[in-house]
Computed example of a mutant assay.
Amino acid sequence: MSDDTSEPSHHARPRRKPARAEDPAPRTVGFVLVPDFPLMAYTAAVEPLRAANTLSGCELYRWWHAAPGGGVVQASNGLGILTDVAVGARASADRVFVCAGGNPAEFDDPSLFAWLRGLARHGATLGGISGGPYLLARAGLLSGRRCTLHWEHVPAFEERYPEIEVVRSLFEIQGDRITCSGGIAALDLMLDLIGRDHGAGLAAGVSDWFLHNQIREGLSPQRMDLRQRFGVRDPRLLRVLAAMEANLEAPVPRVALADLARVSVRQLERLFREGLGRGLHRHYLHLRLDRAHQLGRESALSRAEIAAATGFANADELARAERRRHRQAEA
């Protein structure tokens, strides 16, 4: 651990009222930003704290930033955030959130992981946003816990950490561990925490400040339902689509899918062409290839392991399917 004991800078707050004797002690929130972190998720987490300070007229929250290597850390869009706490420094915090995007499976920084474990031992609640839960798991901080993370990272995470229960919710608060799927779900998470800390009235005021007219609960789903995503209404087609997405490792035979829809295979093929503009087999194949691409980008699995996880007999069969799709896209 470093001997750096410098206090993190406390950000100026607009329109603050004079301190009152009854003002609560401010909570300190740390943000550990991993290079290429998602700016939207970070902003959705930090801005509600600023708004809570402004609307309450006192400093309810203060925050600091850290990043591997220190200095200025760049978001995925190139915007830089200046850090004010060094990784390894003694830093006080009530909550610390790790915000990561890109490919968190490839990130490895033992010194950062050790520092996070130290913060947890000293009583800080540890949280992860977007791909941040992946790094908490790498640090051994999610053992025996339930967590969520961005849906794009879930397949690779489940392959690597089968012992950790993953729920596809907006956020999960489990005692001294908090995980969030990212994006604007970070706003809903912070509104929940503000409500717990200072009451539902202030949380509602912050939500209204950001034109967020419905505070979503943590267990709300991350993604739009199949009806919205694919623009289909036929319940038979929706049942089959759900079965396909739930069975990529061991694809369901066409006859079984038709039985699920209570139609013949020929009728099911027609439903797919009319509703989605492509046949049943091609749609299922594209789902499996998309998952294979995700695993290849975000996990350390071998090609053979990725093939097995997406219903292909071997890596060669997967490669042939990828080449065919590429040729079709160019045609």
Rank of each mutant, 00 (worst) to 15 (best):
A12V: 06
P14T: 03
K17V: 11
A21F: 14
D23R: 05
R27G: 09
T28P: 02
F37R: 14
L39S: 06
L39Q: 12
A44E: 10
A44Y: 14
L49H: 00
C58T: 15
A67P: 01
Q74R: 13
A75S: 08
N77D: 12
T83Y: 12
S92R: 15
S92M: 01
D94P: 09
P104K: 12
E106C: 11
D109I: 06
A114P: 03
A114I: 08
L126F: 05
I129H: 10
G131A: 07
L149K: 05
W151V: 13
E152K: 11
E165Q: 12
V167E: 11
L170K: 07
F171R: 04
I173Q: 05
Q174S: 15
D176Q: 14
T179V: 02
G182C: 03
G183H: 03
A185L: 07
D197C: 00
L202G: 08
G205C: 04
V206E: 10
F210L: 05
G218S: 07
Q222F: 01
D225F: 00
Q228G: 00
D234C: 02
P235W: 09
V240P: 01
M244F: 08
A246M: 10
A246L: 01
E249F: 03
P251W: 02
R254I: 01
D259L: 07
L260H: 07
H283P: 10
L285F: 09
H286F: 11
H286R: 15
H293F: 08
H293W: 12
R303L: 08
R303H: 07
A307I: 13
G311E: 07
A313T: 14
Q328L: 11
